[in-house]
Design a protein around this nucleic acid. Structure first.
Lengths: 329, 329
DNA sequence: ACTCAAAATGTAATCGATTACGAAATGATG
DNA sequence: CATCATTTCGTAATCGATTACATTTTGAGT
């Protein structure tokens, strides 16, 4: 219930002075500043940010949209994002889509109703069309995807290179017929990795066979289905690359439960580098992405945009390093 | 930039009428309502919620604080919470503590500065003292913990019963010397489960030995240390119960890597029922908690409190059912 | 056509902070 | 002590919506 007005009265100053103290405006005399601060403490006064936000036309809030939280991959990105938001003095609302496209609108409305100042889309949470309509009006950052020229800052790893390295590793071990379980959507990360996969194969003198590539969601049934779809074509698969740790763990599970006719000793490399790859048996060789940093950097880039309210902010691409970590598969 | 004032001008009505249309107040004549709606669509007008929130003294926002997001356990609770927030028309800010006590204050400040209307603490994210100071001033819900008489609604499973059932299952299989890797803090859920463990032992004529119980965080090093601490006492452990799936997965990992001197065939039961228990090899027998529902119900309870602004809202305890799911361990 | 209650709309205050602008206090200087 | 530049502070407008209250319009009834 307490307000600047009451603080002002109790401190025998005007509301303006109280406000100045709150925003430590250097023009207020030291003695009155102390007096006001004392009253503030006495009354246990906290400014009403609803009022402040209205007057300043800024909520100091940003939004990050993730496809889902159940995948530790996204959880780790979210962790980095939260840390950055805190560091830069912003509130962050982290929302998940859970495969329901229309939920996106509720988050976009946070921008349109002035509750949020900027937005980060992680992975393929937003399609190109939506992005196009937003990019002109609001500061937008894409995390883990890279759509050049779309007018949003993109923060990701070099997916093509990563796909190349994963494939090279399997080739180095002598695998020749490598299946690729890709992501569910035709996002830039999915396509980029496949590009790298293709390049490594060709470089090794192996023909790229699209029949060995199948998209899949992050659930057991889907992965099993996709894998068996490829196996059913009879190309004698001896290696597998998956778009995520989770998919790889489901492949191992499928093998163990005799739902996927492969040996557990097959060459298997996944992307992400979450703890999942460490707790499976066998543990999984992965391309480790700097997930925390991806989240952190995305927020940082967004904050930069918000602060240079001019379109001065870098609209470009930020590429973070990845790393191939060899484990048991 | 558009505001009610501009809409009013374009529609030849007053701001009051526009506002009434926005809140579909039935007193406005159908024809003017349509006219206003048309102008709104034309101008692509969206109300500024910063202004609305200030005037209404309500942000329609709640906060949920989790210890961390990296554990799928919490991610699933968060998922349920988000769904409920959406269903009941609230915004939700989900924050994690990441073991840093002081971060809590930033979330509590959302309440104190009117940015949020109520708060949910999951697991042991808030200590009793903090809760005491908040419960009088704000609507609070505790999720997965149960502190009777604290003035907050508590939503959880029956931890004592669950601990009892887990222990009974191992006893049924003939295990007699059962170690208990508990949670890190002395929270009600941790203590409740140990109560059940104790009760089942006594019922089976086995003396409760506190030396077989050790707390541990959710990381590999800590779990290994705790487990080996117990094993070092030479009680011939033949069964283990852990507070979380993650801990259990780390025990399996420790065994596999020969860091924990136990057989993989040991009796092992954990709590939670996340997908982790399904992707390990062997898969883990767990007490499955209704995580999504715990999150959903917590938000629902909070919303009830917010709507009955009287202290009419049920201050009690909501107990959700758990289930023992037998897998390979 | 007149009355008057009901229906529809408008005027202006309000939420609680920030801030442009102007006024007052201060104090150094001649 | 008068002057005037600096400091310091206060008044009132403002952000954009909601809403109490006042006012006008409408239309049924006579």
């Amino acid at each position: 219930m307490s307000s600047v007005k009451e603080v002002a009265k109790r401190a025998n100053v005007s509301v303006a002075t109280v406000s100045r103290v709150l925003n430590n405006d250097p023009v207020v005399k030291q003695s009155t500043k102390e007096k006001v601060l004392e009253v503030i403490k006495e009354m246990n006064y906290k400014p009403n940010l609803l009022a402040k936000n209205l007057r300043k036309q800024a909520s100091k809030t940003i939004v990050m949209v993730l496809p889902a939280m159940s995948n530790p991959y996204f959880a780790e990105i979210a962790r980095g994002a939260q840390a950055a938001a805190y560091d830069f003095g912003y509130h962050i609302i982290i929302g998940t889509m859970e495969s329901k496209r229309w939920i996106l609108d509720t988050y976009v409305n946070l921008l349109k109703t002035n509750l949020a100042e900027g937005m980060i889309f992680v992975s393929s949470s937003a399609d190109r069309e939506l992005l196009q309509t937003l990019v002109g009006d609001y500061p937008i950052v894409l995390c883990t995807e890279n759509y050049p020229g779309i007018g949003a800052t993109c923060v990701s790893i070099d997916n093509k290179q990563a796909g190349y390295e994963a494939t090279r590793e399997l080739l180095r071990r002598g695998h020749r017929s490598i299946a690729y379980i890709a992501g569910n959507r035709q996002s830039s990360s999915v396509l980029g990795r496949i590009e790298g996969y293709k390049e490594a194969l060709i470089e090794a003198g192996i023909e790229y066979n699209p029949e060995l590539v199948a998209g899949s969601k992050n659930n057991f049934e889907n992965v099993t289905e996709a894998m068996n779809g490829i196996l059913g074509k009879g190309f004698g698969i001896d290696g597998v690359i998956t778009h995520s740790d989770l998919q790889a763990s489901y492949i191992l599970k499928g093998i163990k439960e005799n739902l996927i006719p492969l040996e557990a000793s097959i060459g298997l490399i996944s992307f992400d580098g979450t703890f999942i790859a460490e707790i499976t048996n066998p543990s999984i060789t992965t391309i480790v992405q700097p997930l925390y940093d991806l989240g952190y950097t995305s927020v940082h880039q967004l904050v930069l945009k918000l602060q240079n309210d001019l379109a001065e902010a870098p609209q470009g691409v930020v590429i973070l390093p990845h790393e191939l970590v060899i484990r048991e598969t």
